[in-house]
Design a protein around this nucleic acid. Structure first.
Lengths: 240, 240
DNA sequence: GGAATAGTGTCTTTCAGACATTATACG
DNA sequence: CGTATAATGTCTGAAAGACACTATTCC
């Protein structure tokens, strides 16, 4: 029946880490992703997205979770199917179709990744400068994942997956600013987030800084009780 | 390397046809899709989405075009990857991963489809009433395709793919109304379409009706010259 | 009190929606 | 001339952006 081809999953894992880039001496947050170095042909020595083969009995999202855990040890706070890439000559070794996922991880988990000779974090916007050309068509895949995150953050509540369970609005705004690459007006950001109903105030504050303490908020999952009008699943466990 | 599984493509083909549904005696346009009847197990006798297996040397989108042409004879004016479904037990006969595409076809082409014992058009919103339960998870897939079309028609210029090369704004509005299932204010629709830059006026009009002739418009492809800020490809030939 | 950020108020612009009005065809 | 739709004008309310202002904490 089916053709003789190999089905893989790859994941664009994104985390917000302090900008290690040149000229960013400050606390600037920057999108980073973990890459793994290939240790065999094709593209031996080049950096690539974490991934692996799909086994017969697991769902695609489970394969994504498993392979990214195996290669990086990470467990994402958010996982979403991005796109399926299957051009005939993506891989020089034969036909490979890759179902690509996007994952978001929080900074503490990201920091726990054991970086080594064959695993490293790289700033998502400056991949060629830092790690050279990626293997396969992975550079294109990363570009698409970034485009989608940047557009989606405008209408869906996903930025919180970069943060802890409770967070201040300034922290949430920092995430948006880092993702979009521009600064946002604190007052207007506060209003639009409040109006969206995506967060609810807790009765706690974050004190300790040299200014008025900030209230802590928590993400509120689906607006209504149904899917909120967005993807039919994505709020259900997963689908496949 | 890869697991032993079968890779298929299926396509949700959508056309706007006069509503044949009960209670719709008028010119009401309604979203329809062609279904094919299965002639073997599993789901023998049930209706299913057109599709087939991916061959080793064709891109996924080509496989979608080929299989939908083979089963229905259609050649779509628009084709876009929707989602990849791969739950372990979607098919009782073994692991099947389906890359699903959405296609839009114009009414004249749709009318040319040879309907028969094993091919028919069905109204997209009333599938259970007209054709019973679809095979596999195809009902869920159709729901998702409809959801995506309805959300996308709000921000992307895709409704024109249901129309001929030139069209009046009333025709374009009729498409939007049929897709969204609600009527739109002609004046406001005209303004928003003009502001989007998605259409340009020709110097021709459509006369012959008992009222002032309507100007004909043509779709203008990518707003600027680049991708217009939307998916990195989707304006390029195809990718993946 | 000074510095710094949290949080509010307000003005303007933009845009969607409701709806009135004018324009131009056919019969 | 009547009718029907094309196309334009205008008003209103909601939301986004710019920015002034008040509130509260640490030092």
């Amino acid at each position: 029946m089916g053709a003789s081809l190999d089905l893989a999953v790859s994941t664009v894992i994104l985390a917000l880490l302090p900008g290690t880039a040149a000229g960013c001496g400050d606390e600037t947050l920057q999108l980073h992703l973990p890459l793994v170095r290939r240790t065999r042909e094709p593209f031996d020595g080049r950096w690539a997205l974490p991934g692996g083969w799909v086994t017969p009995d697991e769902r695609l999202s489970s394969a994504a979770r498993r392979t990214l855990a195996e290669t990086t040890g990470l467990r994402p706070s958010y996982l979403e199917q991005l796109y399926t890439f299957g051009a005939p000559h993506r891989s020089p070794t034969g036909r490979v179709v890759s179902v690509v996922y996007t994952a978001l991880v929080r900074a503490p988990e990201a920091a726990a990744v054991e970086v080594g000779e064959n695993v490293r974090w790289a700033p998502a916007d400056r991949l060629p400068d830092t790690v050279g050309e990626l293997a396969f068509d992975h550079a294109e895949i990363v570009d698409y994942a970034l485009w989608r995150l940047r557009t989606k953050v405008g209408y869906a509540a996903i930025a919180q997956h970069f943060l802890a369970e409770v967070f201040t609005l300034a922290e949430l705004r920092g995430v948006h600013e880092a993702v979009l690459g521009k600064s946002l007006d604190p007052a207007n950001f506060r209003r639009s987030v409040a109006a969206s109903g995506a967060v609810e105030a807790t009765d706690e504050v974050r004190a300790g800084a040299a200014h008025r303490p900030a209230r802590l908020y928590r993400a509120v999952l689906p607006p209504g009780g149904a899917t909120g009008g967005y993807p039919p699943w994505q709020s259900r466990p997963e689908l496949g």
